[in-house]
Design a protein around this nucleic acid. Structure first.
Length: 704
DNA sequence: GCGATCAGCGG
DNA sequence: GACTCGCTGATCGCC
């Protein structure tokens, strides 16, 4: 018997594999190369030998902080199979192989392949018959190219895939309608499903008139593989179908760019197109159950089914509505800037005694610090820093500096906003941004092409750009924003008595904080004290360091540290909360929002000090930012479907993190204002009141 | 034509 | 390995 027993030192096995296997993380961002390599070796030994039983021992010692969690993970996996001598059975081998799959290496696993039969058809009878297929679910991929729908890949069983080109009477509308009808009797799955809503409206949204519901989970609903994969690993950027295939199915799919390059898809061979679309449908069908299971296991079902999926439909609707931008006024604004830019340009050349490219930090640095001999303070990788904070300190030294700063500000407005936005105004005089749901690590939405979430606000001249954003004729904007949502969430999550009380007093929170931190009566707080308190509040919310705060306030790191310490003396609950949250994040490997959204923080276990500090700030910050994002998403769902329930003409068109903009019909102003404030405030109940401010205006400048 | 670098906007 | 992040625009060196 003893000759048939394989005795393994678990620590050595994993340690050995750890150093031999290139480092990679699993889908949750946790390093698992050692576990992977170890199990791989174990399987190959067991398969090529006659051992009848297996015994693995572990010792407590392990000094390597990166290695230790991997040994523990391996121990966990092994102990789930049994204690002491574990019989080597077929089941054991299978479960080890499954464990290997779960670890999701970045490399490929042998043996996996497409098991797909592809059929291409344009025959109406065949297509009609196809949509009568009996199944409880289907996966599809609507192949698009610059807004044109080229064809549909669809599968009802995960092995037979049909590709239907959009041609003749089989139009995109027709196929979309077929999908809509199909969604009444089965769950449909796709990748980046928002892109198919132009033609396809899932029945659960077509008829929906209620907002967010806690208990609504799952059922026969649409499922987006991309969003699911993002929730499980929000750190990965640019999820392509290819990545999901590799991560969940160990399959290799050529990237879109590799297949088609930059050629328009319409020019591509039908065979290549059909294979590409069909493979994505195949991937979706087969990855869906794995992703659903993982979401269930990680407690993110509500997030997926009740928040993100309805949200993707809403984001589509907002993109489609768009926002009117007055072309001529934007042009006039740009021309006005140009006059002053030209003046400044001349003045700068004269002061420098030479014409050069002011927009080139390299040339500007040479002029300022070499030709004019100004004191160079900070350096960048490739030369002098000419950043605004550096120049501001130099302003008294030479009159050219102020002009450069003004020039910078104006050219920024001109190029990014005046000219930049103009390029996106469509034929309907509206800008249709893209809201991206699967980019940020914390759960926030992002906006691109153009980014409408960073329209100037802080300076008056910049802010004026908002005047060109207008509602349609006769309508107005209703603009509602949460007042200090992150700080309120911090108060709630930290349960800090002082902070909670401060919010119940309903007075200026930064002033209260300053009063407490600097031990002065509320009325006697100076504007500088208030500004400092506000900066600390801000820093806490955005997870910046004492160093970052010192940069922000232009004070020494020492002073900044003192402010932070005073802040923590004032709100000890916040300090305690942050310590607890770092500890639990370190233990779990991820941080969590109130709604269970996760953010892996592998940096917390790093040996590099800076990296670990970064991890700590992320761990403190992600639950706050992420919870704010969750709450806003819930509010959007509530608001959107409330508008629909009441059959209002007013439309939700923008989201800027803590702010919503509704293009509002004149006869609906009162209803919409009340609805916005109510739904946003009641999206969640915290131990502090939620406060929403709503303004009405005939343009975005006025409404804000 | 492309990617790296610097700069600056918002929440 | 730096100090928030995501986005965009201008420049510049590289192929």
């Amino acid at each position: 018997m003893s000759e048939n027993l394989l005795i393994v030192n678990g620590n050595e096995l994993i340690s050995d594999a750890f150093y031999k296997t290139p480092a990679f993380t699993n889908s949750e961002g946790v390093f698992v190369n050692g576990v992977y390599g170890g199990i791989f070796k174990l399987i190959s030994i067991l398969k090529t030998s006659e051992y009848k039983a297996l015994s693995i021992s572990f010792s407590e010692e392990c000094g390597n902080e990166r290695l230790k969690p991997q040994i523990l993970k391996f121990k966990e996996i092994i102990e789930a199979k049994g204690q002491g001598e574990i019989p080597v059975t077929k089941e054991l081998l299978e479960s080890l192989e499954n464990a290997l799959k779960d670890l999701s290496p970045s490399g490929e696993v042998k043996g996996a392949s497409f098991d797909m039969t592809l059929k291409v058809t344009s025959d109406l009878n065949e297509v009609e018959a196809l949509f009568e297929t009996k199944s409880d679910r289907a996966a599809f991929y609507f192949l698009t190219d610059i807004g044109d729908f080229l064809g549909l890949g669809i599968s009802f069983d995960g092995s037979n895939v049909t590709y239907i080109p959009v041609e003749n009477f089989i139009t995109a509308d027709y196929l979309g309608k077929k999908l809509s009808i199909l969604s009444e009797r089965m769950s449909l799955c796709s990748f980046d499903i928002k892109e198919s809503y132009k033609y396809f409206e899932p029945s659960e949204f077509a008829n929906r008139t209620y907002g967010y519901k806690d208990e609504d989970v799952s059922g026969n609903k649409c499922f987006d593989v991309l969003i699911g994969a993002y929730l499980i690993n929000p750190l990965k950027n640019d999820y392509e179908p290819w990545d999901v295939a590799k991560e969940y199915l160990k399959l290799t799919l050529p990237k879109r760019a590799d297949l088609f390059g930059k050629e328009p898809l319409a020019n591509a061979d039908i065979k290549v197109l059909s294979e590409y679309a069909s493979k994505i449908a195949y991937i979706c069908f087969n990855a869906e159950p794995l992703i659903r299971a993982k979401l269930a296991k990680t407690g993110m079902e509500r997030l997926m089914y009740n928040i993100e999926m309805p949200l993707s439909y809403i984001l589509y609707s907002m993109e489609k509505e768009g926002i009117i931008v007055k072309r001529d006024e934007l042009k006039a604004y740009g021309d006005k800037l140009l006059v002053r830019i030209d003046e400044l340009e001349k003045a700068i050349y004269e002061a420098a005694g030479i014409e050069f490219n002011i927009n080139s930090p390299k040339q500007l640095g040479e002029i300022l610090f070499e030709k004019l001999g100004l004191p160079a303070e900070k350096k960048t990788k490739s030369g002098y820093s000419t950043a605004a904070d550096v120049l501001e300190k130099l302003a008294p030294e030479h009159k050219i500096v102020a002009d450069i700063l003004e020039y910078r500000g104006l050219t920024k407005l001109k190029s990014t906003y005046a000219d930049g936005l103009a390029a996106y105004i469509a034929d309907d005089n509206r800008i249709h941004t893209s809201f991206n749901q699967t980019i940020t690590a914390t759960g926030r939405i992002s906006s691109t092409e153009p980014n409408l979430q960073n329209i100037p606000m802080r300076t008056e001249l910049g802010r004026l750009i908002r005047k060109v954003f207008v509602p349609k004729d006769g309508y107005v904007f209703a603009d509602a924003d949460y007042s200090q949502i992150e700080l309120r969430i911090l108060a709630h999550m930290s349960e800090d008595k002082g902070l909670i009380e401060a919010y119940h007093e309903g007075k200026d929170i930064h002033r209260i904080t300053a009063s407490k931190v600097f031990h002065v009566p509320f009325e006697e707080v100076t504007s500088l004290q208030r500004r400092n308190a506000k900066a600390v509040n801000f820093g806490i919310v955005y997870g910046i360091s004492a160093f970052g705060l010192s940069q922000d306030l232009s004070i020494s790191a020492h002073e900044a540290k003192e402010y932070m310490e005073k802040y923590f003396e004032t709100y000890p609950g916040v300090k305690k909360y942050q310590e607890d949250v770092i500890a639990s994040t370190k233990a779990k490997g991820y941080s969590e929002t109130m709604f269970g959204r996760r953010r892996p923080v592998p940096e917390l276990k790093a040996s590099n000090f800076n990296l670990r500090q970064f991890g700590e700030r992320v761990a403190m910050n992600a639950p706050i930012q992420g919870t704010a994002a969750d709450i806003m998403k819930i509010a959007m769902i509530d608001v959107f479907f409330k508008l629909k329930e009441l059959s209002l003409k007013s439309k939700l068109i923008l989201q800027i993190h803590d702010e919503l903009v509704i293009e509002t019909a004149p006869d609906e102003v009162d209803t919409v204002t009340k609805l916005l404030v109510e739904e946003m405030e009641k999206a969640v109940t915290l131990s502090v009141p939620m406060e929403v401010d709503c303004h009405i205006g005939s343009d975005w400048y006025e409404a804000k």
